[in-house]
Simulated assay, not measured.
Amino acid sequence: MMFEENPPSSYLTRAAHSEDSQETITAVSHVLQDQENTRPVPADNSKSFAASGDLPAKPISPQQRLARLRLLMSRQKAEYESKIASLEQRHRELQWEIRDTHWQLGQQRQRHRLAEMRIRDAERAKEDAERRNEMLQKEMEEFFETFGEINRWK
């Protein structure tokens, strides 16, 4: 009964601003009729009514109708407030989860940057080592060429 087709609050709001008490009575009457039409039918109709089309003869006074409406409104208000409190709590939990996720994302980014720096450093070190190896290779070739020429002279 969370959302009704014709919620009582719309009738009451409209009627509260009207100076015509007949309009208020009519609005309350419509709401009560809507409520009565949506109520479940008792399982054993033989005890409730003499014939299937008979309705109870006891009329409901406007004060009783208003009291029922107020009770209905207070129940709905309590239900809505409970749902709002629940949603606000869930919102706070999700905010904390988002903050935690952002922090973890920041940590992951930092680790990623460090890993990239290490990879770049390793690539530079490899390139430097390859250049040194090439230079040593050339020096060794020159050395052997020179050493070979010296051995020929002997």
Rank of each mutant, 00 (worst) to 15 (best):
Ala67Thr: 13
Met73Gln: 10
Leu32His: 02
Asp34Phe: 02
Pro56Lys: 01
Leu72Pro: 08
Glu23His: 09
Val31Thr: 11
Arg65Lys: 10
Asp34Val: 01
Leu69Phe: 08
Asp34Gly: 09
Pro56Gln: 02
Ala16Gly: 05
Ser74Met: 11
Leu69Gln: 04
Gly53Ser: 06
Asp20Asn: 04
Glu5His: 15
Val28Phe: 00
Gln33Gly: 11
Ala43His: 08
Ala15Val: 04
Pro56Phe: 08
Ile60Asn: 01
Asp44Ala: 04
Ser46Tyr: 10
Thr24Lys: 00
Asp54His: 11
Ser46Gln: 07
Arg70Gln: 09
Glu23Ile: 09
Pro8Ile: 14
Ala67Met: 13
Pro56Asp: 05
Glu5Val: 15
Thr24Pro: 00
Leu32Gly: 02
Ala16Cys: 10
Thr26Val: 14
Ala15Arg: 02
Gly53Asp: 06
Leu12Pro: 03
Asn6Asp: 10
Pro7Val: 13
Val31Ser: 10
Val41Lys: 03
Asp54Met: 11
Ser61Val: 04
Glu4Ala: 10
Leu66Ala: 14
Leu69Ile: 07
Ser52Met: 07
Tyr11Ala: 14
Asp20Leu: 11
Ser74Leu: 15
Val41Ala: 01
Leu12Gln: 02
Gln22Asp: 11
Leu12Arg: 04
Asp44Phe: 12
Thr26Pro: 11
Ala67Cys: 13
Asn6Trp: 07
Arg70Ser: 13
Asp34Cys: 11
Asp54Phe: 04
Glu5Ala: 14
Ala67Ser: 13
Ala15Lys: 07
His30Lys: 09
His17Glu: 09
His30Leu: 12
Val28Thr: 01
Gln22Phe: 11
His30Met: 12
Arg75Glu: 14
Glu36Leu: 09
Arg65Tyr: 07
Ala51Cys: 15
Ile25Asn: 00
Ala15Gly: 04
